[in-house]
């Protein structure tokens, strides 16, 4: 499920089934790494789309959580709201190491995707998505 009016309307009644919120965190600093960050944003959206297809009925994937600078503590504020709303699990996806109070973080590997052939891109997204999926399942089962 996504953060759309329709999906939120479903979640409200089905929170016992849609029990996991995924928070994709990306950096948007305008520094000398911004081109990398732009690729991250593109790549993570492809991963999210596949996750949504596969596990729509059990996940809320939140809009990209954009962070400027080192401090990502706003994620914790958001996490608390999600927990209060009723999500049993909350999981952060991120390209950089984040240490967040009480939230598991799945680290995504950087893949240089520019100008990549569509088939190669597709298989790289699938590979990375498999890692994420296994991690989510591990968290569900722990």
């Amino acid at each position: 499920m996504l953060y759309t009016k329709n999906d939120l309307n479903v979640i409200k009644d089905e929170i016992e089934f849609i029990d996991t919120a995924i928070i994709p965190v990306v950096d948007i600093d305008m520094d000398n790494l911004s081109m990398n960050r732009a690729e991250h944003i593109e790549f993570i959206q492809l991963i999210i789309m596949m996750l949504e297809k596969q596990l729509k009925g059990r996940l809320l994937i939140t809009p990209l959580f954009t962070v400027v600078g080192e401090d990502a503590s706003q994620v914790e504020v958001f996490n608390n709201q999600l927990k209060e709303y009723g999500f049993k699990n909350t999981i952060v996806l991120s390209f950089r190491e984040l240490s967040l109070e009480g939230i598991p973080v799945i680290k995504i590997n950087h893949v240089p995707i520019s100008d990549m052939d569509k088939d190669i891109l597709e298989s790289m997204v699938k590979d990375e998505m498999t890692i994420v999926l296994k991690e989510i399942i591990r968290i569900w089962n722990s």
Binding site: E42, M49, L121
Partner: peptide, 26 residues
């Protein structure tokens, strides 16, 4: 999850041509 990526990755793949925005793709 262990029965193999091939069949597990059964979901479709969406590649927006202007790969950027997200929601309307769904």
């Amino acid at each position: 999850s262990l029965m193999g990526v091939g069949s597990f990755m059964a979901a479709g793949m969406i590649l927006p041509m202007g790969r950027f925005a997200l929601d309307p793709l769904f």
